Computed example of a mutant assay.
Amino acid sequence: MDEHRVYKYSFASVYPHYVTKAERKGRTKAEVDAIICWLTGYSQQQLDDQIAAKTDLKGFFSDAPALNPARDQIKGVICGIRVEEIEEPLMREIRYLDKLIDELARGRKMEKILRTAA
């Protein structure tokens, strides 16, 4: 799929997939929301508002109150691509989130996902 077409999707259209992936592996919507809020700086209410507004992915990330500076610690492969090597900024942000949700679904502890473990 053309990367630029991905940006036109609303965050609300991909969000349920994140929740479903987590819940299938025994994790919770609350954990998904905590990851999204950690990455973007949105409060829970702001996240809910973005979902209700059906903001596109570009707007979702560009409107984020405070992208977490620790997100550059997110490393690894998602969809066959190393996230740290993605040059296009918006696609890198989207893949950071994909990677974090993948870590959640694989059973990683929240402290490690949120890069707070010592």
Results as ranks from 00 to 15, higher is better:
85 E>A: 13
47 L>E: 08
33 D>R: 13
4 H>L: 08
118 A>H: 09
26 G>S: 10
30 A>R: 07
42 Y>S: 04
74 I>M: 03
95 R>P: 02
60 F>C: 09
54 K>W: 00
45 Q>V: 05
104 L>Q: 14
89 P>F: 06
118 A>W: 05
93 E>M: 14
32 V>R: 06
83 V>L: 04
7 Y>I: 03
26 G>Q: 07
67 L>Y: 03
25 K>C: 09
13 S>M: 09
34 A>K: 15
55 T>A: 13
36 I>H: 08
25 K>A: 15
41 G>R: 02
70 A>G: 10
39 L>Y: 08
66 A>T: 04
76 G>Q: 08
7 Y>H: 05
41 G>C: 01
27 R>N: 13
5 R>L: 10
109 K>S: 11
12 A>E: 11
96 Y>G: 05
46 Q>Y: 03
36 I>K: 09
20 T>M: 05
114 L>Q: 11
77 V>R: 06
17 H>M: 04
16 P>R: 09
29 K>D: 11
75 K>I: 04
38 W>Q: 02
51 I>L: 14
20 T>I: 03
114 L>W: 10
106 R>V: 00
17 H>L: 07
105 A>T: 00
64 A>W: 12
51 I>G: 02
1 M>R: 01
28 T>H: 14
46 Q>W: 04
98 D>F: 13
80 G>D: 05
110 M>H: 12
100 L>V: 03
13 S>T: 15
75 K>L: 09
92 R>G: 06
31 E>V: 02
60 F>V: 10
52 A>F: 01
14 V>A: 04
118 A>E: 12
59 G>H: 05
